[in-house]
Computed example of a mutant assay.
Amino acid sequence: MIFNTLLSSILLQLCLAPLGLAAPISTQTLDNSWQYGTGGGLLGLIVLILDIIVLIEVLKSSRTPLQKLVWCLVVFLFPVIGVIIYYLFSNRSAYQRGSGYESLA
């Protein structure tokens, strides 16, 4: 019971933390909202969402654990380039679980 409560509070904090860092508060100018760097901005939020989508897709695939680890590290260490490399070179259709229907005998 205590473990479930602790786990749910940690997951909630992890889900809400990126929202606090997504758009930096700037009192000087408002025309810098498309920045990508410290604080993120709108472009950083989009990259974060794409990275999470790729990580979920990799972890749900039928790859070996080593392949999953390598793809997750590539996407984690190189967020923008990693997503591009994954979509270009990952052969996603070969590793999808439950892709297509089984024929009835």
Rank of each mutant, 00 (worst) to 15 (best):
I85G: 00
P79N: 07
N4P: 01
I52V: 07
Y101K: 08
T38C: 11
S61N: 08
R97L: 11
F78W: 15
S33N: 10
L50W: 05
R92W: 04
L66N: 01
S62V: 05
Q96A: 15
K68L: 01
E57Y: 06
S9H: 13
P79D: 06
G44H: 02
M1Y: 07
L30H: 10
L21R: 04
L55N: 04
L69P: 01
G100Q: 11
Q13R: 03
S33A: 11
Q28D: 10
G44F: 02
L73I: 04
Q13E: 08
V47G: 02
S61R: 00
S93C: 12
K68M: 00
V83M: 02
W71T: 00
S93Q: 15
Q96G: 05
Q96H: 07
S33H: 10
S62W: 00
L7D: 01
V75A: 02
Q28C: 13
P79V: 02
G100F: 14
S26K: 11
L66V: 11
V54F: 08
K60A: 05
A94K: 14
L21K: 10
V75N: 01
I84V: 15
A105N: 12
T29G: 13
V80P: 06
F78T: 14
Y87G: 01
L6N: 08
L12H: 03
Q96F: 07
Q96T: 04
I49C: 09
R63H: 03
L16F: 03
Y87L: 03
L6H: 07
L21G: 07
R92S: 08
W34M: 03
V75R: 00
S103Y: 14
S90K: 04
G37T: 06
I81G: 08
C15V: 15
K60Y: 05
